[in-house]
Design a protein around this nucleic acid. Sequence first.
RNA 1: GCGCCCGUAGCUCAGCUGGAUAGAGCAGCGGACUUCUAAUCCGCAGGUCGCAGGUUCGAGUCCUGCCGGGCGCGCCA
Length: 584
Amino acid sequence: MNYFKYIKDILLVEVEALIVDGKFPVGLDLSRIGVEPTKDPAHGDLASNAAMVLAKPAKTNPRELGQLLADRLTQCVDIAGADVAGPGFINLRLVPEFWTNQIPAVLKAGTAYGDCDLGSNEAVNVEYVSANPTGPMHIGHARGAVIGDALASLLNKAGYNVTREYYINDAGAQVDVLARSTHLRYREALGEDIGAIPDGLYPGDYLKQAGQELAQRDGDKWRDAAEEEWLAALRVFAIDAMMALIRDDLAALGVKHDVFTSERTLVGTGANDEVVEELQSRDLVYMGVLDPPKGKLPEDWEERPQLLFRSANFGDDVDRPLKKAEGDWTYFASDIGYHRDKYRRGFASMIDVWGADHKGYVKRMQSAVNAITEDKGSLDVRLCNLVNLLEDGKPAKMSKRAGSFVTLRDVVDEVGKAAVRFMMLTRSSDASLDFDLKKVTEQSKDNPVFYVQYAHARICSVIRNTADAFPDLLLDDSSLSSADVAQLQDPGELAMIKELASWPQIVESAALAHEPHRVAFYLSDLAASFHAFWNRGNADESLRFIVPGDSTTTVARVALARAVAVVIASGLAVMGVEPVEEMR
RNA sequence: GCGCCCGUAGCUCAGCUGGAUAGAGCAGCGGACUUCUAAUCCGCAGGUCGCAGGUUCGAGUCCUGCCGGGCGCGCCA
């Protein structure tokens, strides 16, 4: 349960009651009323701006209006006190039982705690990775993969019906280059000395295996054939080989997709023709000549009539080409066809995760989506900034086997998928990220992966020790959920519970903002609070979880600790990271 | 030149879509270990939220204009 929403509903009921009583005028705009956590505990547990927002339309002052509301709210069972403070905030304190009751709620829900129905099962398509099938994934791709995957999990948790999709860019000139590069490796596999890889072809060693497999499958069938004879066949072969490579990389990272859509297949079935025809019928397509970019005239500029889409009608800066001067489809045209395909498959809500270098395409793509869905669909694009791969503060050395970049596989082998996934979410997606191979495996608080995992492991340790100290106690979640939590009245204990109980609110706000990194921040904060909570027991033994000879108190405190572990596990699940139970 | 993003503590960044006295980590200084895991914690210090206006009960957050940085800018993907 999102307790902010719960309390807000109570507050709205009271506002309505005051309207019925004639204390407030009819027709007030209640939409701006909010209930939020307080920053300063002295202000209570929750605060509402209701009085300040309503004062003007109600033609009274906030404090007077607030007092009317506060008087009524004080009567509610969950509310221990309500008072008006500052410019007109209504500060609320909830009864301790409200908080302590959150513990069994967490324990009963398990990692499903925080699930909500924000999305009302609305279908959402999240497209991510979509790396070109020309080689293995590198560390930059991993960021998009993790962000997309975590966002999908987050939306799923928030009640959306999520489809995870990968768009295979297998139709452009780059896959012809791939086919030629593969042909070279194929000849090499047949014993030919190919010398240095010519400029313009992919030099990576990863194509050697594809060349060998092709030689094994087809023998010397293509060796001396002309390019036009083998190009199509090798393209298919090489794309399949590269996609197999990429799927392996994704599996190593634990990233899954429900749907893989091939650009080539889509174009082949006429998706581009269809969408252009449709746009044509709405007079949104024309043959025209674009102006040169202002202030930066390319040297080889010449006027070229092209098939253009009126994207400027839908929010873009200028119209954009659908076909190259030679008549081939542009990438943009295929993307319009693809997004229309998604829309027709039932996704009015689309999210694309792209590299930040594609930023210039966001507006035109959104314009296109506006056009093809007639404003009934929406596209949000999450841009992922660069990952700076470091090794103890210095730029990491390049991978030998992959050419000029560090492969994702190398990094996962080095530090593990949990570390990669967690680290990728420690910054907002549009900020660049330092990824230090040394630091992510350090066992110190500098390493957020460790820090959060350590909190979870400590809790597991406490439960193990409790079982030793009280062999007769049942310590499974179901048993713990009937612990006598009402005795947890210490301010530190209540503060710990309040932080736990804000998890559903984090899920909702992060899902609405499409920002999965907020989960990582929340978990770091939660872990910090738990470590501090734990250390109280070092200064004062009576505050430890395990109280010798007092099983009632022990069980209540262990129930609280276990609830922290459950919420950590719930958050880690969104991030795709397994919690650890022990880390000695 | 145009568009988008960014500018918050010495450094790296949060800031829950407008709330009360702007937070955290690192770095610095000073403390807490015969431990339920000190792999942790506590304290101190550190700020003109780039600048100037505006919107309103209230602005780091929204609007406008500057300054500074990054990225992109017909057919590539």
